[in-house]
Design a protein around this nucleic acid. Structure first.
Lengths: 392, 392
DNA sequence: GGGGTTTGTGAGATTCAACGACAAACCTTC
DNA sequence: GAAGGTTTGTCGTTGAATCTCACAAACCCC
């Protein structure tokens, strides 16, 4: 009971920012005494502090603003991508304190080498924190299928990983007992965007991440949709074209084969394996009026709309956030995409749906990993943090 | 606090059946004293009674079996379909006490006439109950889009209804203050199957209802997926064939146009509008070895698998329950459907997914409506029932 | 019939939030 | 500038609800 009340207060502060004590009373429905008591405990624990409120002009005794202590209470977000590895320290309340991203070599990745890199980055990030802090958890976003345990990577095709207990592999390198949890990269993106990004405060969100493959993160009713085995959200393998290209999943005409980077390049008559640079080039040519480029983007947008239509009819997400490559492409795909949506999405559902590019950009999955790391504390603020590991 | 504990006990009894008091202690984590107190309150309220346990052969004092009182605590489930109207009385614990189904005329339905029929059936059902009972709620399943309020029908194309406040329209005819809630017919099917049918005790379920259209009910993480406006689950309008037939939704190549009743008849070279009788005929011909019939069912099964593949990759439902017409067709479609799933569903997800025909049959939506009606009491067992309305 | 085991019961302890009265801190007004 | 009004924090008390612990009850087996 007390625990639940502590949790709602901390959760509210983390998600909605500093709040006056009297607002907390209104928001929680508790009495002033109860809130006072709970805030006192949180202050003792060092999670929050109270600062005098700005003069507001309203009558009555001013209420102090309960503020999360971001600098001394941190989690780590880790993002392991095909091209880069990134680590961020995020304070309570969602403040990004520090973040580092480092490119790495392509192709099937050596697990040990990658995790050593991660460990190096975490030390860098933690060492650069000026205030002595407590570490509440670590979240790791990986482009692959993560089991429900939040610890094991079932498969990560783009990394060449399979059946890897990532938590067990990472723990010894972090020199910390902080809880580590793993999630899918698109799920992380969805989480971040739904808390602080383009879908802030929305309980139903579909996040589409167009990187090498196409991943999806789904939030319904305020909760991440994990599915029975933890693999839900594989929108990249929604079949939408019976006579389409073969997909690496073994199927044919998957969403991913139609709206992936390679297909866009192919549509423009370019080398499908040319990579991100060629995309930039393509966009410039389109802006310059190149007919092939314009037509390729037009067609790409229609296919994006076609696949999205089904997802929207099934999930009724309210907000669709386009991340990764799709965020870059968004302005160029928007018109044909929306036209197709108007045709295929049921009118009643279409009316309640907006499509927005990611607001957090390339850092969305990284910040989402950090948000996941916060979740344990938000559910139980009495869970103790671990002391900050310091190298040497 | 006490309320929450009462609720978990009642919910457990409703979903899992009669339970000994000592099992309740284990399940809830409360102490024997607390459980004793709570059970006493439920007994006072007439919701449960304790019966001596059967001699079990185990040592120790026998624990009485806490049993929900089905006969004296009831809800009504109502199902409004295109061809029929049905009403059922369901007791606490899920016991079906009485049910009536009555055919009605096809086509755009007169709202008043239909609701008068419903009222007539409810009186019949209630009057036939032998024990004086208390009514805890009414649930109504409708084939259409129901708003989040659980009261308004946004559109029900097959009934010709739009923007109808069904609760307001129904209340005066029921002569009762019992809370009325409305839900989509496929959502009702999913609810029923996930509680007592082919997906019992599963938290992730996709229910597919193939009637005139194709509807979907989705349960994820133990909760019904409603979506931001309440319209989620419209799997019938998942586009899967860019060059497919036009759909009445305005799109093209929707799941529904490929696996609906009409398309199956068309595939067999029959009149698409011939109706259910023609389907029976088709199945007989297929059993007799008619090549056209066999091929039509084969193709139909592949399309069912194609569309399902996407839904499974996105939702990872664990169990897919086929209801309505698809339940009848299931044995004939199974092989081509599964073959297609094996090709298009990611192996890791495929391994955790089973496809089953509805266990509750045509009554699934009806029983699901009753389950929805129970939900309020399961969440708050202190909510008072209304006296049973008796005609004359 | 006695010992062992499991369960229900009842009295006191404990934990927290609700309540009510009062003091503190701000505003407005005369 | 002092008085009155308003809102808020604090403190002691009350009350609800569960937990603890000891004991009695009801079964088994030997």
């Amino acid at each position: 009971m007390r625990l639940a009340n502590l949790a709602t207060i901390v959760r509210g502060l983390h998600l909605l920012g500093p709040t006056t004590r009297s607002d907390l009373v209104r928001r929680t429905g508790l009495t002033r005494s109860a809130v006072g008591d709970l805030v006192a405990e949180l202050t003792d624990r060092g999670l929050v502090h109270e600062v005098p409120s700005e003069p507001t002009g309203a009558p009555g005794r001013p209420s102090p603003v309960v503020t999360p202590r971001a600098e001394t209470n941190v989690v780590l977000g880790v993002e392991i991508m095909v091209d880069t590895v990134a680590v961020a320290a995020v304070g309570l309340g969602g403040t990004l304190l520090r973040s580092v991203r480092r490119p790495r070599e392509h192709g099937p990745a050596d697990v040990d080498r990658t995790l050593d890199d991660v460990a190096g980055l975490t030390s860098d990030v933690l060492d650069s924190l000026t205030t002595p802090s407590a570490l509440f958890g670590v979240g790791v976003a990986v482009p692959g299928l993560i089991r429900r345990d939040g610890a094991t990577v079932a498969t990560a095709p783009n990394l060449g990983w399979a059946d890897l207990h990532l938590v067990a592999a990472l723990r010894p390198r972090l020199a910390s007992d902080a809880p580590i949890s793993v999630l899918n990269e698109a799920d992380a993106g969805a989480l971040a965007e739904s808390r602080r990004g383009a879908a802030a405060r929305r309980g139903n969100v579909l996040y589409l991440s167009g990187e090498v493959g196409v991943g999806g993160g789904i939030i319904t009713g305020g909760h991440q949709l994990t599915g029975s085995t933890g693999f839900a959200g594989e929108v990249g393998h929604l079949p939408i074209r019976p006579d389409g290209d073969e997909c690496r999943c073994g199927g044919r005409g998957c969403f991913e084969t139609e709206i992936g980077e390679a297909k866009l390049l192919e549509r423009a008559g370019l080398d499908p394996a040319a990579g991100a640079g060629a995309i930039t080039d393509l966009l410039e040519r389109s802006a310059a009026g190149d007919a092939d480029a314009v037509r390729a983007l037009e067609e790409h947008g229609r296919w994006l709309g076609f696949g999205l239509s089904g997802l929207i009819n099934v999930l009724d997400p309210g907000v669709v956030v386009l991340g990764g490559l799709l965020r870059t492409l968004h302005p160029h795909l928007e018109r044909p995409m929306l036209d197709t949506l108007d045709r295929h999405v049921l009118a009643d559902i279409r009316a309640g749906t907006t499509i927005a590019p990611s607001a957090l950009g390339d850092d969305a999955p990284l910040l989402g990993a950090a948000e996941l790391a916060w979740d344990r504390t938000l559910a139980d603020p009495t869970a103790l943090p671990t002391p900050l590991p310091r190298s040497a």
